[in-house]
């Protein structure tokens, strides 16, 4: 149990009312452990993103509990939950969501700045993380001057700069070509994953399945207990 990073139990989420009501996630339970990369896969509309939002403290479930390192995150108030995300969870969004008017280093430094660290200190640490992702020489460029793969690396550097225990990647290869996507996930596997970190990746890109420790499949809002080998064979 001590190795469990995320524990979701019987979470449900529905949208709308009456006939328009959609049950997006149904009685979903799962655990993700430190030191592993867990993939959540499934077709569009299967509830992956909704589930991901609930386990990362962004979307409140209608029922069920989500515990991260033993903390029931949905019992925290809004400010405490925001602080929790800021310190404990790193996000890599599908479209990166980098600020085009800031330099690459400033983009990476944002979580530390939100943590009220000094500007200079945050930028100094951003340089270190940019070096980790191999973009030290791009620090002063705006993100729009970078390639898609480089922007993805910047987004990863931003996600890990606060040394979060949980890293959430939403469709990390969706905006990238095949080779670049594989390289990015391979990079995450080799350089970002540690024994003290849990990485959850939502994807439907079967070309990167080889980098997962475990794969869970969702269909119609439910967890289908599928392991990695079965998916590899598909």
């Amino acid at each position: 149990m001590a190795n469990v990073a995320i524990a979701a139990e019987q979470i449900n989420k529905w949208f709308g009312e009456g006939e328009a009501r959609t049950h997006a996630v149904k009685d979903f339970s799962f655990e993700a452990n430190f030191g592993e990369i867990l993939y959540v896969v499934g077709p569009s509309g299967s509830g992956k993103t909704t589930m991901l939002s609930m386990i990362s403290g962004i979307l409140r479930p209608n029922s069920g509990t989500v515990k991260i390192e033993g903390t029931d995150i949905w019992n925290l108030d809004n400010d405490a939950l925001a602080e929790f995300r800021l310190h404990k969870i790193g996000f890599v969004f599908q479209d990166f969501h980098l600020f085009p008017r800031l330099t690459t280093a400033e983009n990476v430094a944002i979580p530390l700045i939100l943590q009220k660290r000094s500007w200079d200190e945050a930028l100094k640490e951003a340089q270190v993380d940019l070096e980790i992702v191999g973009l030290k020489d791009r620090a002063q460029l705006p993100p729009v001057k970078l390639s898609g793969g480089e922007q993805q690396r910047v987004a990863i550097a931003r996600a890990i700069i606060s040394r979060p225990d949980i890293l959430i990647l939403d469709e990390p290869t969706a905006s990238l070509d095949g080779d670049t996507g594989r390289n990015i996930v391979s990079f995450v596997r080799k350089n970002i994953l540690t024994d003290q970190r849990c990485i959850v990746i939502v994807t439907h890109d079967s070309r990167i399945y080889e980098f997962a420790d475990r794969i869970v499949k969702m269909e119609d809002g439910r967890l289908m207990g599928v392991d990695k080998e079965k998916l590899d064979a598909q």
């Binding site: 903390t71 925290l76 405490a80 602080e83 404990k88 700045i113 660290r117 000094s118 500007w119 200190e121």
Partner: peptide, 19 residues
């Protein structure tokens, strides 16, 4: 509802809103 105990208070060398 409580603040998470692992979240540290703002240290003296931190910049409250400047950044």
């Amino acid at each position: 509802r409580t603040a998470h105990p692992s979240i540290l208070p703002i240290a003296e060398n931190r910049c409250p809103m400047g950044g």
